[in-house]
Every structure is written in structure tokens, then in C-alpha cells.
Design a protein around this nucleic acid. Structure first.
Lengths: 170, 170
DNA sequence: TATGAAATTGAAAGTCATTCGCAACTAGTT
DNA sequence: AACTAGTTGCGAATGACTTTCAATTTCATA
């Protein structure tokens, strides 16, 4: 079981702005943003680069609004339609995963990480990521039992986190 | 593992209209709609009675729009605000469960049945209900592991149903 | 069974996240 | 540099609810 906790701070940390310069000698640890855009068959525009930077370097879970605000802080010329459009494209091509729940805005996350599900605190909205192969296996089993070929799933657990339990029990 | 399949027919079957008369001798198999409304601390109005009948006797899964259409076919005077309002109240008091997914309208179902999750065909939208205690138990375990007290969960599996698999594989 | 305060209703207006239409604007090929 | 198809920002549109409010109805009490 792996996990990663995350605070609920409202703004995204400012990611480093520059793409690695061609001439630097620093190691290229990951796929460059330009390559991602080209691989999608899209033109490389400044807005898409900025959105990608924010998405990849900001906090793990974000809404389109989060991205829009961070992006416009850097370049006020970018409209939210562009943010929504590009996030949709990214999610259609599995670069980000999109979770839409309730009447709330969709939450996204960069998907280049291992699959996981979420445990959300219904009091403070803190999100804990977890991964449980056993549950995954059982899901496959259920699908098979009904003759379905499983293509995806949504598993979100809701509860009260340790901090909030402590606060509410004096 | 239990299950119940359901067709995707677009309209709700017309439920019998009358409340059991006081004088009939027929067995009272379930909580009367009037009692439900009173238990909620609400006034018994005709619109709430009609909505309850439709919800309890129509098909298992429905949207607010489904209910609104069936209800207005019976009594055109009922507005959709009333339907939405009452469905929300019912769901707040756990008489119906509400699942909101994607940008789609919320789906409801009468909750007086045993807990279950859903396996949905992403091609034809057929819904299969299933219940898997082992998965439930693992969810509790995950929550405990992170110190959360589990209050609820959402588990939806997506796949392609046997019918659709057959059709797509010639 | 009258009465009236409080709850409820329908219609219309308001929200809110997201999407669309389109003229102006670019990236990237030629 | 010119061309052209892909992109963009803006504002308007959409769709699913939600709220507002004046008119109506319920139901405890007289």
C-alpha cells in the first residue's frame, strides 16, 4: 500500500518558469512539455506550454479553476476556455485523469503516476491517495462474473481524517 | 453476490395510482407514502405523494428529469423545482441514494434495498447492481490504515457488457 | 368546520461549471 | 515572406440544478 498526503492550501506553488534551455547540460529527467504537445498532434503554443508546466509542477490535485488562476497569474492573456479545452484533451489522451463528482468542479491530476484511488475527508477535504491491488483484483472478478470486460472504475472513499476526528472529540 | 439487471427503456412504467384505501383489507406490505412524508416532518401534499409513488414504483434507476416527466404526465401542475426539492430532501434523509457523475444529471434510486454498487456498460449504459462484502471489508481496512473513520464510498465499475461485446466482435 | 400561521408550490430568474461560435490571430510548412 | 489550418479569447449559450417570491395549501387549533 502506497500513499501520499497533501495539504488543502488554496493556491498552487509557482512552478519554475523556463523550459530547459537547449544548451544546458542538466539531465533531461522527463518528457519535455513540447514533446507531449507534439505527440498529441497539436501545435506548440505558449498557452499550452504554460498550462502543462502548471499541471505538472503544481499540486497533485487541482480543478480547472486552480489551473486557470495560476496560469493567468503568469500570463493574464490566457482565457479559461483554453484551459478547459486543453485539460479535456489531456484527459482524453490519459495525460491527466479527470474525476467529476457531485455538482462540484471536476478535479484533475497528472496521470503519469501509478494508478491509485482516493480517500477524502468529508470535513476538511484532505485527500489521501491509496492503492490496493486486492480491491482491484476483486473488481476484475466481479466484472468477469457478469461477463463484462472491465475498462475502468471509480473508487472514492469518504470519511473523517485523524485530525478532524481529534478536533471534533474534545 | 446478488444482482439485478435492468433494461434501458426510456420511460418509467406507470405505477398504480391509488394509495390503499383505509377500508380495504389488503395487507399493508410496506410503509405508506404518507407516513414517510410525516416522518420527514413535512406536510403531506399531493405532489409529494405522486413523486413518492413514481419513485417507489417506477424503474430502479432514474434521473430527476425522468421523475419529472412521469409525474407531470399524471399531474401537469407539478413543477420540476418541486421534484428536485423533494428528491434532495429524500436523499438527505437516505430514502433515496443520489449518484452524481461526470457532467451527467444525477441518478437516484430508492434506497430501501440492500447496499450495492454498480457495474455500468460504457456502450449501452446498461446497469448491473452487485454487492461484494469482500470489497466493502477492504475499504474499511484501507480507511482504518490511514486513521480515517469511513462514512461512505462510491464504487462504479465500467466495462462492456456481454451483449455489446458480442455485437462488436463479429 | 372555520381560521390563520406556517409550510409549500410553480414560474421565472439566478448560479455555476463547462462548452460553443466565431472573428482575429499564430505556428509551422512551403 | 506567404499561406493555411490549427488556436485563441471573448462573450454568449448550455444544462442541471437552486433560489426567490407571491400565491396557494395544509393542518393544528378554536
Amino acid at each position: 500500500m502506497t500513499f501520499k498526503e497533501e495539504s488543502t492550501a488554496s493556491s498552487l506553488p509557482a512552478p519554475a518558469h523556463q523550459e530547459p534551455l537547449v544548451r544546458t547540460t542538466q539531465r533531461q529527467e522527463r518528457v519535455p512539455n513540447k514533446k507531449i504537445i507534439r505527440d498529441l498532434g497539436l501545435k506548440v503554443t505558449n498557452q499550452r506550454l504554460v498550462i502543462l508546466e502548471v499541471v505538472r509542477e503544481g499540486k497533485a490535485h487541482f480543478t480547472a479553476q486552480d489551473v486557470f488562476e495560476t496560469v493567468t497569474a503568469r500570463n493574464p492573456e490566457i482565457g479559461f476556455a483554453t484551459v478547459y479545452r486543453f485539460l479535456r484533451t489531456l484527459s482524453e489522451h490519459s495525460y491527466v485523469t479527470e474525476v467529476r463528482m457531485g455538482g462540484m468542479p471536476a478535479r484533475y491530476e497528472w496521470a503519469a503516476k501509478k494508478h491509485h484511488d482516493h480517500l477524502t475527508c468529508s470535513t476538511c477535504s484532505k485527500i489521501v491517495e491509496f492503492e490496493n491491488p486486492e480491491i482491484e483484483r476483486l473488481q476484475e472478478k466481479v466484472a468477469k462474473e457478469f461477463g463484462f470486460s472491465l475498462t475502468g472504475h471509480l473508487l472514492e472513499l469518504y470519511g473523517v481524517c485523524p485530525d478532524c476526528r481529534r478536533k471534533s472529540a474534545p
